[in-house]
Design a protein around this nucleic acid. Sequence first.
DNA 1: CACCATTAAATTGCACACAACTAAATTGCG
DNA 2: CGCAATTTAGTTGTGTGCAATTTAATGGTG
Lengths: 136, 136
Amino acid sequence: MICFELYAASRAMTSRYRPALDALGLTYPQYVALRVIWHHVTITIRDLGHALALDSGTLSPLLKRLEAQGLITRRRGTHDERTVTIGLTPAGAALEHQAAGLPERIAYTTDLTLDEFHQLHHLLSRVRACATTNTA
Amino acid sequence: MICFELYAASRAMTSRYRPALDALGLTYPQYVALRVIWHHVTITIRDLGHALALDSGTLSPLLKRLEAQGLITRRRGTHDERTVTIGLTPAGAALEHQAAGLPERIAYTTDLTLDEFHQLHHLLSRVRACATTNTA
DNA sequence: CACCATTAAATTGCACACAACTAAATTGCG
DNA sequence: CGCAATTTAGTTGTGTGCAATTTAATGGTG
């Protein structure tokens, strides 16, 4: 039952982020979305959805909440008016510094060695690749 | 970002179960709850919650739906009336046979070797243990 | 150019997760 | 024994995930 182990481990790890994210006023999905936006500065909802493997049914309300918090901006595309490009407000950009080093701090509290992290990362990307490519 | 890999891999694997579970009329959380019930035949909500790392806020409505589907029974404890013991209806017990071998069939469609599965299982239980014990 | 298939977001509906709270039963301590 | 702390389920409220549908814009084909 690898699937249950993934499901339980994912929830357990996410719960480790919760105290720090609560202090920033973010949920975990909001945080990972912001990470992608911080990295790209501006990004379409379409590309954000590909990066996170989430559809507009999840992202639309999530991004609406981030906009309501004054962290991001939404702008309709000019040459393709179907697209919406997400940008950062000063507050949204500033939040990157407050959240800096969070994954490292969490990883530090686990007992895994660096080598085990690399192994796990490799296996998880394999699993994810198998599970996604074959589905399409 | 092990946490995001877990989050993405978990969702990807769960989506692999979806077609088979749709045919059984189950969601993935309902399926994993039923697996525990099949194994124990009868179990209190408390113990089920410990096995799945889910609280009554999640389990109460989930079990109510399984009961509405005629798969499980709920019975108040006799010597401790706070507890509720879950049992199986004939339909709920029969479903075990229809769901037999599902994890193996899903695992077969991934490219991982048996050895990689063991490694992954080991690392995931380590992660889960670190993430849960230190939180408590 | 007209038209249809495709694409991007948003919306709706359902089922989790989880925090916070409530209600009822039990336990334990003075 | 009496009563406060604890335990067990259930309820409420918020925020995802994801299927299905809707709306609007784009692109390709005849």
